[in-house]
Design a protein around this nucleic acid. Sequence first.
DNA 1: CCGGGCTGTGAAAATCCTGTGAACGCAGGG
DNA 2: CCCTGCGTTCACAGGATTTTCACAGCCCGG
Lengths: 266, 266
Amino acid sequence: MNPQQTIRLAVIDTDSGFVTVLSKRAEAAGWQLRIAASAVPPEELVAMKLNALLLDPGVLGEDGWGYLERVCGMLPDLGVIVCTGRSTVAQRVRGLRLGVDDWITKPCHPEEAMARVEAVSRRRRRGRHESELGPLVAGELEIRPDQFQAFVSGESLDLTRREFELLQLLAEAKGQVLEREAIYQRVWGYAMAHGDRSVDVFIRKLRQKLERRSPGWGYIHTHFGVGYRFDPEPVGGTADEALALPEPEPEPEPVSQVVHSSFTPG
Amino acid sequence: MNPQQTIRLAVIDTDSGFVTVLSKRAEAAGWQLRIAASAVPPEELVAMKLNALLLDPGVLGEDGWGYLERVCGMLPDLGVIVCTGRSTVAQRVRGLRLGVDDWITKPCHPEEAMARVEAVSRRRRRGRHESELGPLVAGELEIRPDQFQAFVSGESLDLTRREFELLQLLAEAKGQVLEREAIYQRVWGYAMAHGDRSVDVFIRKLRQKLERRSPGWGYIHTHFGVGYRFDPEPVGGTADEALALPEPEPEPEPVSQVVHSSFTPG
DNA sequence: CCGGGCTGTGAAAATCCTGTGAACGCAGGG
DNA sequence: CCCTGCGTTCACAGGATTTTCACAGCCCGG
């Protein structure tokens, strides 16, 4: 547990008193803050890589509900806290149902606001520990987080950033079938629009680059109607290495952790 | 996918007025409820497989804070909502920092309490990505959500996505008779048109694939005029395996994973 | 014992899904 | 300003999957 996980928070409010006090305390706590006085486009929020968003819908004007809905829909992993003046039960219920995580009433003690931001952010602390530390090996492939790159016997696959992140995500979930929506959500950082084919296109690019450097191995498997699964296996037929290394595991039952240095290729 | 994911909530409170009204609404919404008038040991809460816990620390007595801490510590995936009378900012902050997800003040409109329970459950559910994907076992069958697939002794049934979801739904409701309309609603995500036979057709496909991999067992039973029921049982007569493996359990709930109704009456 | 639903079945028809190649827009570097 | 690398979007083709249909068999009340 990191009790003092640094939090990235954006505040959208014009109540300068509240904002100043909050800013002071938040910065004292080591949080990273962004302040805005009016609606910030969801795309920008994506780019900020926030943990949470604290806003007063009073400053949103007309389309406040629409804005909340868009933000909550596009960034399901973002904690959203509404902090506003008087409101009716119906309004609060509507907001919470839309995807808002907490709704507090001004005047509000900044300490409580911060505690609620923490409460909402507290979750998915699944340390990047293991992934940051060692390179992970799968088949002939070596994925090196420190290089943002993958290699086969020392030769780079020349992956772009996105390609690398996609490959890393799949490889870390080794053996699991990942849905497109989940993949998109975790690599792109926001919800996948219906009908978006980006994931497919990137999978194709990955397969091309993998094939070029490591022919004779299949890494990414398609699960129709669901998504993709990473599981390196020698492709039958012509591969020498495949014959030299008969599949050692008939059914890798334990869906345990990501195993870095698996079986030795030599 | 499932907007109407059924919520399992426990309430610990003695405020009978509040509890009765809340119960009524929650049950109308299809939630599964458990009411208690005093602290419930964390181990029991675990067994209840709850989404959320709503409690008034007033009824906890002396060790209220300790209890909250133990519960939040032992069940990190449980949403905890405190609903109590007047409280100080310091108390609320302390609670939230301890792991409480939301803190609301009585008197409190039940609709808002429910909305907050939903909000907390929603967020909790999203957080646990890879955590709770325990395979279900029934008869010779192993249903693996992480693979979107079912297996019999390691061999895949080659289910399509719809087939898998249907099977999973039935298996999770083990023993219960599910109406076609309900099945359709939960697997397809919208209401079944009158006269639609899709469910029947998929049941047939499932039975075929089950029969191919696990002959000698009957899994899906038809209830005339109602729907279907999942209940694995060795079919009498010619099956060797069935005879070689006499049913070890006469009727009780044997398997660990699929405990659906651990909600004890009373 | 009969008849009107209700369910099982097989196959055709309609849809949906994925792989793929290429065009497009954008941003940074030369 | 042009060129290049990268990510996104489109359109199409080939399959896989789902839905629809017509018919046969089964269940239950009368």
